[in-house]
Design a protein around this nucleic acid. Structure first.
Lengths: 231, 231
DNA sequence: CATTTAATCTCGCGA
DNA sequence: TCGCGAGGTTAAATG
């Protein structure tokens, strides 16, 4: 990885056009050729960047650029599209290259997939007599997170979100409409399950006869642990 | 801005739990206290990070950490939530601080707002006799991007997206349902206009009698230019 | 300040 | 490879 601190202006042309006036910034060139332009603020998103696959070339400034004080130009082109980034460097404060090696990568825990796995494992938390049919039940318009049966043997489609918003209710509604048109499956009722359900989403769901369930990730994991401890 | 190259492991606890095994990485500490952990690959997203407002403190490794070879621990805490990042540093390769000053910021061109302005200006590209009623036409559930009339004087609601997906069709459908209940407006037809329309979105839209139009930003801008050149 | 919506979204999974 | 959905989405605009 190459890290350069430089006074520069930047222009991007591609899916949109963007311009960064002259200022001192951090330029990061990664092993795959991608370039990031960071300022000393904002959040993790760079002010400007080029995603891989791309290649970076250094060019000599033209007459106008040289007259403006540009000493070096980086031309970064995307390999598959016409996206291009031009970094006009006026002054280099620092320029260093490091060998970082390959990163072992991030290990995550607590995302929607885990919620789904935990709820499937403890499907009875939805009510007495509930039994799992299958996770990721495929339909023509996409997979239903969990398909199960309630105590009366009625099919139930469960949509799981970390944060339940209107989009999720719309999604479940589409699944229910489709599945209720299938005589093999109908009638199918719906459960909208999330760690947190926005009031608007709850209202919409209940208005459509969809039951809302708030999931407690730690509690589900706790059940997991205490059950394992029985053995 | 402080830039550190170090062999480290990182743990995040907050909305989820995440762990980065020991490796050499770039650590960026911005003026607002935010921290970014970058590897030599991936895109512009850091492997791990802490968003502002937050504060970073250096701590002495405990006994176990020291036994593992940790020489220094960064504890980064978010100011408003319980999110925390622990960077366990084993070896510092480089550590430098730079004064970048305040960034003048990015100037953009070519986003959805511009598409809307351009299409409103050239509403006749939707068909002969089309006329603009108004942009951002307010309804009880939000603003319709463009309201216009077709050649027969029938009211048309236009939803504009850069990339047309199912959500956009749902949104337009809600507007149309509402507006068609209003005797002053009904009947209202719909147009889903985007630079790119996903097949599923197109299918859903056309199934609901909504016309799909693919917009060409450069062409609309070209019309703009050539019209201006007439004067 | 909360809410909504766009994003050069990125990222990962599955067909 | 492409499409689709999730994201510690982030970030900007708006009521």
């Amino acid at each position: 990885m190459r890290v350069v601190i430089a006074k520069c202006s930047v222009d991007y042309e591609g899916r949109l056009t963007a311009h960064l006036p002259l200022a001192t910034r951090l330029l990061m060139v990664k092993a795959d050729g991608s370039v990031l332009v960071h300022s000393d603020g904002g959040s993790y998103k760079p002010l400007n960047w080029m995603s891989p696959p791309c290649s970076m070339a250094e060019a000599v400034p033209d007459e106008d650029e040289a007259a403006d004080g540009v000493t070096l130009v980086w031309v970064v082109r995307h390999a598959k599209s016409d996206d291009a980034l031009r970094v006009r460097i006026h002054e280099v404060v620092s320029d260093a290259t490091y060998d970082l090696g390959v990163d072992p990568g991030l290990v995550k825990d607590g995302v929607e997939a885990h919620l789904q796995a935990l709820l499937a494992e403890h499907i009875h938390t939805l009510g007495d007599g509930y039994s799992l049919v299958r996770r990721e039940f495929m339909t023509a318009i996409g997979p239903v997170d969990i398909l199960c049966r309630d105590g009366d043997g009625v099919t139930v489609a469960v949509e799981i979100k970390r944060r339940g918003e209107i989009d999720g209710v719309e999604q479940l509604t589409r699944y229910l409409e489709l599945m209720n048109r299938d005589p093999h499956l109908a009638p199918v009722t719906g459960i909208f399950a999330a760690q947190q359900i926005k009031p608007q989403a709850r209202t919409l769901a209940e208005d459509r006869g969809i039951r809302c369930v708030v999931l407690d990730y730690d509690e589900l994991k706790g059940i997991d642990t205490s059950e394992h401890r029985l053995f």
